[in-house]
Amino acid sequence: MTAPQIIENILQALVAGVLVGSLYGLMCVGLALIFGVMRVINFAHGDFMMLGMYAAYYIFTALGIHVLFGNGFGPYVAAVLAGPLLFVVGYGIHRALISQVTGTRTLGLDGEGHYAQLVLTLGIALILQNGALIAFGSMPVSIRTPLSISAWELGPFWGDFVSVFINKSRGIAALISGVVIAGIALVITHSRLGKALRASADNPVAATYMGIDVDRAHRVAFGLGVAITAVAGGLLATTYPFHPFVGLEYVIVMYAGVVLGGMGSIMGAFWGGMTIGLVQQMSTLVLPTQLQNTAIFVMFLLIVFLRPQGFFGRVVERT
């Protein structure tokens, strides 16, 4: 392999890492929002993302989005529309189930309360995965867009030797992800809702004294977190095929990103997810593809052991 080829490979992996990393970052933001506000680790988060993928798929095919917006941009419109739909789903599931074991009624509990929350979301994960299997079947599906087989070319640099290709489909997905992240950041920092969510995260009891309905704030945060990750899922579905158990493949990516970003820090989670994407893509330069996920798990374990407070953002874990 010549030097320009090596450089080209590295640059190409870097670009691929940024593209997939921006989607991972979006997923992680959804999980981090839930963890940051509620201190609940949502075990079913990958499966909500899977629901987002199917939602985008059916919105695209069944709701006639492909007719309205065409096959090129329709999938992205569908992915974004999956957000509000999954918000309702997340909000509803929180209200019906998760609020039974979380929120103000468990403020006084320490160890035992969290235990119940973790296990409850595990139950939800099992129902979502297997329910999806019943509803959608086990055949992998994908949302096809003609953009996924065309690319923008950057370069050539270094004379004529090095050029980098950006897949159009992934490029647009990354752009949309950036816009969504920016929107979320604005809402969290400047809106009354965002401030109320942060206040509830900082100190739920004091937030109650301010007149903030912390249980409702939790429901909104849960719905929002699910919706954000669902959009990420919808965007991911434009390039990767998916199936009912796809959530498991991403759930560790999300945990790793969130822990890396400093549990609960929202922008930290984005950079954490981005880092995971880069590591994953760069690892393909040296590792067989099947071990990509193992590389992520090993990295995740290393982060948890060496620096559980994360690399980005502040330490927010109480006690």
């Binding site: 039974q100 994960a125 129902i127 297997n130 329910g131 299997l133 019943i134 086990s138």
Partner: peptide, 22 residues
């Protein structure tokens, strides 16, 4: 006909236990 029924049963069992008889 319903391939994921086992997982759904376990999921429901976990949720029911956590809520009704933790």
């Amino acid at each position: 006909w319903v391939p994921g029924i086992q997982g759904v049963i376990y999921g429901c069992a976990i949720i029911a236990v956590m809520i009704a008889a933790p």
